[in-house]
Design a protein around this nucleic acid. Structure first.
Length: 581
RNA sequence: GCACCCGUAGCUCAGUUGGAUAGAGCGCUGCCCUCCGAAGGCAGAGGCCGCAGGUUCGAAUCCUGCCGGGUGCGCCA
């Protein structure tokens, strides 16, 4: 139940009625009609721009349309006032019962309160992390992991059929490097002295892999040429790395639905099939690219290549799909991979990349547009870096200095809940400061703590009420007489709760889970303010044993707030706490 | 040189498919604890929304051009 959507429906119905009676032209486009909370609360409970949006197509003055609408809307019992204001806004005031109904809905729907159906079951594939399987996830992957997972939860909550997917880059040269590095660890495990050459992976994390390999195959591959062991060790090593990565993700509470292997595309004809599809569309040709202007590589030489005419779908230059040795460029399997997603029936695709991959956005969108005849939208979300701070100084990651910070390091330090919330407290395309000292601080400038504190306070109130003998079951609370909730701070909180479903829809539509985090912060602030008001006005205290009916209403409000906080945190993947320790 | 992202209060950042007088936290100033948890709350000061044009009833939001910061730019994925 979304009160704002309900009232919007009421407005649209009024427009239809007016059109039917000839007061307005028929067939007006109402897509731009919004019902929102006004910025200034004195303007009323809700405002609609309907009259201004319709003015031009209807060839009427906005204020005239607004006046017509006002008359119709007032016929509904939920609307107690409708005033035309400014250039043609229609400000509405709602009956107390309408707001109270929203609060009751929060109690009766519980964990489902705020669910939307804007997705209508649309199958959406969200690809995120997709780190090379050559080692544990490092801190740079954390943000994309958290963002992708929260976005997936958000969209699922908004009615999409969501798949979380990880693309394993297990076909490139770096996997050979991994295999060779594992081979060295294997020899080492068998007692040989080894030296790691430039460009290999000397990380400690490969020691157990080498040891496991030694235990499995014994000395069979010692003193053998690479051709003998490379393919098998490659598979063995990537499996081990993938297990490592799965564990890292699990530590953050992330479970992928699909791990898709790039290697599986090779030799299966699927790359050829995808390119063939582009070729049939006349988008593959042989040609010579111009060097990038202003920055010609020193070894530049004109070369005839097999090119994808991505410029036909919005890219800036056409892109090579074959290397001069005849092999595929990395872009070709990417095309095939996205073609595979389309063939699997997804009608909406989302890729989450690090900001350093921003250069691939246009070509990838061009490919998906070409492959799906523009039918499957691809949204690419770029995540900016998270800067680590510790003891007041930036904590730089450097492989050379040995300060390799893993995702696991961060989670071990502050826990998955804090990691996730902090990463989501910023828009994905804004850089982020992650201060180890601050994020664990118990104070108001730590949003994680502040939101959790509100939830814990509510849990505390409910505990105490129950201890004192009150019936705090949701079903009972939902039957309380809520008319006594008439203080401005209480009404503000109720309005905020009623706004939750609308915020979910907005966040899902924009693919922006951070909106949920900000909403929760504002909601928590509203709750804390009300709670504090009980100091001066004892009648506002939630625990009010002398007035059982009033207490029931206030506890219902507290509980509903707790429900919304819990639902929001669930989207973010953060566990609500019952008490602060 | 080109592309993409960013530019909003002293600092860090929100800002509804374009909506009314642009918000929050920190910091600053001033208030409030025999009180359901003060690990807080209330109030105030603080803005040419990078600059200049354009689109329209209306622009922080859309378009164009500049300025500043970041990320990238054909056989690495």
């Amino acid at each position: 139940m979304d009160l704002f959507a309900d009232i919007r429906g009421l407005v649209l119905g009024a427009i239809d009625t007016l059109a039917a009676s000839g007061a307005l032209p028929a067939g007006l486009d109402m897509a731009g009609v919004l019902v929102e909370p006004p910025r200034d609360p004195s303007h009323g409970d809700m405002a609609t721009n309907a009259a201004m949006v319709l003015a031009k197509p209807a060839a009427m003055k906005p204020r005239d349309i607004a006046a017509l609408l006002a008359e119709r809307l007032l016929a509904d019992p939920r609307v107690t006032a409708a005033e035309v204001a400014g250039p043609g806004f229609l400000n509405l005031r709602l009956a107390a019962g309408a707001w109270q109904a929203a609060l009751r809905t929060a109690l009766t729907e519980g964990a489902a309160f705020g669910r939307a159906d804007i997705g209508q079951g649309t199958r959406v594939n969200i690809e995120f992390v997709s780190a090379n399987p050559t080692g544990p996830l490092h801190v740079g992957h954390t943000r994309g992991a958290v963002f992708g997972d929260a976005l997936a939860s958000l969209m699922a909550f908004a009615g999409y059929d969501v798949t979380r997917e990880y693309y394993i880059n297990d076909a490139g040269a770096q996997v050979d490097t991994l295999a060779r590095s594992v081979y060295l660890r294997y020899l080492e495990a068998l007692g040989e002295a080894v030296a790691f050459a430039e460009g290999s992976y000397p990380g400690e994390y490969l020691k157990p892999v080498g040891a496991a390999l030694a235990a499995e195959v014994g000395e069979r591959w010692v003193d053998q040429p690479e051709a003998v062991w490379l393919p098998e060790i490659r598979a063995f090593a990537t499996d081990a790395m993938l297990a490592l990565i799965r564990d890292d993700l699990a530590a953050l509470g992330i479970r992928m639905d699909v791990y898709f292997s790039e290697k599986s595309l090779y030799g299966s004809g699927r790359i050829e099939a995808a390119i063939e599809r582009l070729d049939e569309a006349g988008l593959i040709y042989r040609g010579v690219l111009d060097p990038p202007k202003g920055k010609t590589p020193e070894d530049w030489e004109p070369r005839e290549q097999s090119l994808f005419r991505s410029t036909a779908h919005g890219d800036d230059v056409d892109r090579p799909i074959r290397k001069s040795d005849g092999g595929w460029t990395y872009f070709a399997p990417d095309i095939a991979y996205h073609w595979d997603k389309i063939e699997r029936g997804y009608t909406q695709l989302i890729d989450v990349f690090g900001a350093d991959h921003g250069g691939y956005v246009k070509r990838m969108k061009a490919a998906v547009s070409a492959l799906s005849d523009g039918q499957v939208p691809l949204d690419i979300k770029l995540t900016q870096l998270a800067k680590l701070w510790k003891d007041g100084a930036e904590f730089k990651m450097s492989k050379r200095a040995g300060t390799f910070v893993t995702l696991r390091d961060v989670v071990d330090e502050v826990g998955p809940d804090v990691t996730r919330f902090v990463m989501l407290m910023r828009r994905n395309d804004m850089p982020l400061d992650f201060d180890f000292d601050k994020v664990t601080e118990a104070s108001k400038d730590n949003p994680v703590w502040y939101v959790q504190y509100a939830h814990a306070r509510i849990a505390s109130v409910l505990r105490k009420a129950a201890e004192a003998g009150a019936d705090t079951a949701d079903a009972t609370l939902a039957r309380a007489d809520l008319a006594t909730l008439d203080d401005p701070a209480q009404l503000a909180l109720i309005r905020r709760l009623a706004d939750w479903p609308r915020q979910v829809a907005l966040a899902a539509r924009h693919h922006e889970p951070h909106r949920v985090a900000f909403f929760l912060y504002d909601l928590a602030a509203e709750f804390h303010a009300l709670y504090k008001r009980g100091d001066d006005l004892p009648g506002l205290r939630f625990l009010d044993p002398g007035r059982p009916d009033a207490q029931a209403a206030k506890i219902a409000l507290a509980r509903a707030t707790g429900v919304v906080i819990a639902n929001g945190l669930a989207i973010l993947g953060v566990t609500p706490v019952e008490e602060m320790r």
